[in-house]
Design a protein around this nucleic acid. Structure first.
Length: 107
DNA sequence: ACAATGACCCAGT
DNA sequence: AACTGGGCCATTG
């Protein structure tokens, strides 16, 4: 477990129920604005599958990750819907409505 | 230490 | 709107 991943999981657990955040935003929140990719990498491992609400993290288009682990994007979609998030398509959410902006520094 | 990989992002065509 | 290419960052072989 690296420090970087720790921060990632940490900020992600801050996302309130019924809201979503982009990889880019998460990256910014941990002080690495250009590390969106690394964030996705950290999530792919997802050591704390049930603990960290990784299903609340989407890409900048509002789409879910294609290679989502832990049951696939289908599972992710169900979890989000269960929290009150409405989907545009099979796997797209409205960022303007549900995107959560992290407080100044959430590290 | 080097090269390759990936749940990404942005700008250009 | 869809496709392409280049750039970023951390992890892994």
């Amino acid at each position: 477990m690296t420090k970087f991943e720790e921060k990632v999981y940490n900020v992600i657990s801050l996302i309130p129920k019924g809201k979503v955040a982009t990889y880019s935003d998460v990256a910014k929140a941990i002080g690495h604005p250009q590390a969106a990719r690394a964030v996705g990498n950290a999530l792919h491992k997802n050591p704390f599958a049930p603990v960290v609400p990784c299903h609340r993290v989407v890409n900048s288009n509002g789409y879910l990750a294609k290679n989502f682990g832990a049951g696939g994007i289908k599972e992710q979609q169900l979890r989000l819907q269960a929290e009150g998030v409405i989907f545009y398509n099979e796997s797209k959410v409205s960022l303007t409505k549900y995107q959560y902006h992290f407080p100044k520094e959430s590290i």
